[in-house]
Design a protein around this nucleic acid. Structure first.
Lengths: 196, 196
DNA sequence: TATAAAAACGATCATACGTTCGTAGCTTGG
DNA sequence: CCAAGCTACGAACGTATGATCGTTTTTATA
C-alpha cells in the first residue's frame, strides 16, 4: 500500500489532535498507546510520525495550545471593563463557560503536567501562572478601591480558581442545571466571600 | 538466593504501599512499573506477588484504604456536634487538615480513578459520594434552620469541596502560610458564601 | 523442635511499547 | 500535465512491561 486517496496533512493532524484529546482524557497519557491513537484516527502507527515528532511532543502541543488560547480569550473577554467588580463577574462567567466547554483540555492540562518533560512543563507552568495573575490583579484592584475585603489575595485567588475549575470534574451539560444557573450560583458564592 | 533474613510480610507490604503511594503520586499509576516499585522497596519484581494480587489490586487497595479512613475520620470528628454552623466549621477544618496531610492519597484518589477497573471504580465512587453526602446534609440542616441561605445544595457542596480540596494541589507545609491561617481564610470564604 | 507456611530469588514468558525505515502511490504547485 | 514532495503502508527494531514459575531459605506455629 501507499498514500491513501483523499488524505491531507492538515486534516490528519487535526484528527490526531482530536483523538489525542479524547484518548488522553479517557485513559491518561501514559495509558494511551500510539497504536490506539492510530487506530482511532484510522492510520498505521508509523504514519503518525508524518505529523508529530514524538508522543511527548503531541502532549505538549495539546496543552500548550490550550493554555495560549485560554490566555488570549480571557484578555479579549476582560478588555475594556474597568470596574473591578464587573471584571470579577466577567472573569467568573468566562472561566466557567470556557472550562465547561473544554473539559478534556482542562483535565489534561492539569493532571498530565507530570507527564511533560521538565523543559516543557516549565513553559506550561509559566502560562498557568500568567492566567492566575489575571485574577490576582482583579482582586488587588478591588481591594485597593475598598470594594473587596480579602485576607490573602494569592490564597483567595487559588481557592476561587480551585472552586470554579472543580466544576469541570462533574458538570454535565445535559444535567439538571443549565449553564446560566451554574454561573449565578458560583458568582454569588465568590462575591459573598470577597465583597466588603 | 531465597528468603531474606529479617523479612516479614507485614513490614514488606507496608513498604510496598508506602513506595506505591510515592511513586504513583510522582509519576502516575500507568507510568510506574513494578520493577521501579520493587527496586524502591528492595525486592525483585517477582517477589511483589507474594504480597499483592496484581498491580491493579494494589491501586485499588491504596485508594480504598484512603476512602474508608476518610469516612471514619470525618464521622469521628463531627460526632456530638449538633449545631449546623459548628458542624460546618468542623468539617472545613477537618477536610483541610486531613487533605493537607495526605496529598499523595488525595491526588491518587481523584486522578487515578480512571485507572481502576470499572468494578473497582464503582466501589470508590460510592464511598466518595457518601463523603460528599456528609457535607450536603450539614448544608441541608443549616438551611432548614434558616442559618444558611443556599441556592442549590448539591452544587454548593461540590463547589465548596472543590475549593477546599484544591488546596492540596499547591499547599506547601513549609511555605509562607501556616495551617491555622489557611483554615481561617477558607472558613471565612465558605461561611460568607453560605451564611444568611 | 519438627513442620508447614511464608517470602525471597532469578530466570523466563508472551506481549506491548515507541519509534524507524524503505517503499509506493496520491496531491499539488509551477 | 509532470515532477516534487507529501502521506500512508507494513515490517521491523530493541526495549520494557506485567506476570508466572520452581526453588530455597527463613519464620512461625503447634
Amino acid at each position: 500500500m501507499s498514500r491513501t486517496a483523499g488524505s491531507s496533512g492538515k486534516k490528519t493532524l487535526a484528527a490526531i489532535r482530536e483523538a489525542g484529546l479524547d484518548l488522553i482524557h479517557e485513559r491518561g497519557f501514559e495509558a494511551v498507546s500510539l497504536r490506539q491513537l492510530a487506530t482511532r484516527v484510522g492510520l498505521q502507527p508509523g504514519s503518525l510520525y508524518n505529523h508529530i515528532e514524538t508522543k511527548q511532543d503531541l502532549l505538549f502541543d495539546l496543552i500548550h495550545n490550550h493554555m495560549v488560547t485560554l490566555l488570549q480569550s480571557v484578555d479579549a473577554e476582560l478588555d475594556g471593563i474597568e470596574d473591578p467588580l464587573a471584571r470579577l463577574k466577567a472573569f467568573i462567567a468566562f472561566h466557567l463557560t470556557y472550562h465547561i466547554e473544554r473539559k478534556r483540555e482542562v483535565f489534561i492540562g492539569s493532571s498530565e503536567l507530570r507527564s511533560l518533560e521538565p523543559k516543557n512543563r516549565k513553559k506550561i507552568v509559566a502560562l498557568r501562572r500568567a492566567y492566575e495573575e489575571r485574577l490576582c490583579s482583579i482582586l488587588e484592584r478591588g481591594a485597593e478601591k475598598r470594594l473587596f475585603k480579602i485576607d490573602d489575595i494569592p490564597v483567595s485567588a487559588y481557592a476561587i480558581l480551585a472552586m470554579l475549575t472543580g466544576i469541570c470534574t462533574w458538570y454535565d451539560a445535559k444535567g439538571r442545571i443549565d449553564r446560566k444557573t451554574l454561573i449565578d450560583i458560583h458568582t454569588r458564592l465568590v462575591l459573598q466571600g470577597v465583597l466588603k
